[in-house]
Amino acid sequence: MIRLTPERTAAGTSYLAAGDGPPVVFIHGVGLNKEMWGGQFVGLMPHYRVIAYDMLGHGASALPAPGTALLGYADQLLELLEHLQLPAATVIGFSMGGLVARAFALHYPERLQALVVLNSVFNRSAEQRAGVIARTGQAAEHGPDANAEAALSRWFSREYQAANPAQIAALRETLASNDPQGYLTTYELFATQDMYRADDLGSIQAPALIATGELDPGSTPQMAREMAERIPHAEVAILHEQRHMMPVESPRLVNQMLLNFLTQARRLDNQAQGIVA
């Protein structure tokens, strides 16, 4: 088991960092925290400097100011890179973290080495949009764990839930322990910003991977394909029989996909710089 000591930036972002090599930063989803990336730390640490942090309003990080926009979440990542003295990094965002990663890629392209968007949303249908807006209202009225049972059923296979009751219970507790206002501010962005600067995605020049699970009901294969069509150098990966929380449920599968992509991205970067491997 890996035991890492959380550190903190001057602006109040809590993060974990381990390993040596090119930096790779992971961004979690709404209601979760940096601890979700344990499987990725194990798989990528031998090759990369792996960094995971708590989004605004989550875990041990600072709360977002009222009305904070998606750019404010991208600015949090920028402050983390500056704290770590990293000129650029590969950014991997899951679900809401994928929206943050996209915003970071659009606003700070010079700080991006490669982009990975996992199980994230794009161009919701009217029915999908109505569903997530309704869940936002329930969270506003009843708190962060208002939809916990339904969320866990969407996120994990029934088999995984049955085989890992302690982990599922811990995730349920994580959801319930979120700061209500921090959670709601973030969830409102998650619910409304799936088309954030969609017409500008063609400006992203870094290597990109857009991936989701075949059985992810909220971040569907169609969404992944439509998003990738907007990004010039994007690959698409649809993982067979995987649901939303595939980085947690199937870390080896996800890690192999990430390592393959990151190896190819480094090769392309070396070629662009005239470096012979």
Results as ranks from 00 to 15, higher is better:
Leu4Ile: 14
Arg8Lys: 15
Ala10Asp: 14
Ser14Tyr: 08
Ser14Gly: 12
Ala17Met: 13
Ala18Ile: 04
Gly21Leu: 04
Val24Tyr: 05
Val30Arg: 00
Met36Trp: 13
Gln40Pro: 10
Gln40His: 09
Gln40Ala: 08
Met45Asp: 01
His47Glu: 14
Tyr53Arg: 00
Asp54Met: 08
Leu56Val: 01
Tyr73Ala: 02
Asp75Phe: 00
Glu82Lys: 13
Pro87Asp: 15
Thr90His: 12
Val91Gly: 07
Val91Ala: 06
Met96Arg: 11
Val100Trp: 05
Val100His: 08
Val100Gln: 06
Arg102Leu: 15
Ala103His: 08
Pro109His: 09
Leu112Gln: 05
Gln113Thr: 14
Ala114Cys: 07
Leu115Tyr: 06
Val117Ala: 10
Arg124Ile: 00
Gln128Arg: 15
Arg129Leu: 02
Arg129Glu: 07
Ala130Pro: 03
Arg135Ala: 13
Glu141Val: 07
Pro144Ile: 04
Ala151Tyr: 03
Ser157Met: 06
Glu159Met: 03
Pro165Glu: 02
Gln167Thr: 07
Ala169Leu: 03
Ala170Pro: 01
Ser177Leu: 13
Asn178Cys: 12
Gln181Ile: 05
Tyr183Leu: 03
Leu201Trp: 13
Pro207Tyr: 01
Leu209Lys: 02
Leu209Thr: 08
Pro217Arg: 02
Pro221Leu: 12
Met223Asp: 09
Ile238Glu: 03
Leu239Ala: 11
Glu241Asn: 14
Gln242Phe: 07
Met245Ile: 04
Met245Gln: 09
Pro251Leu: 11
Gln256Trp: 10
Leu268Met: 06
Asn270Gln: 14
Gln273Val: 06
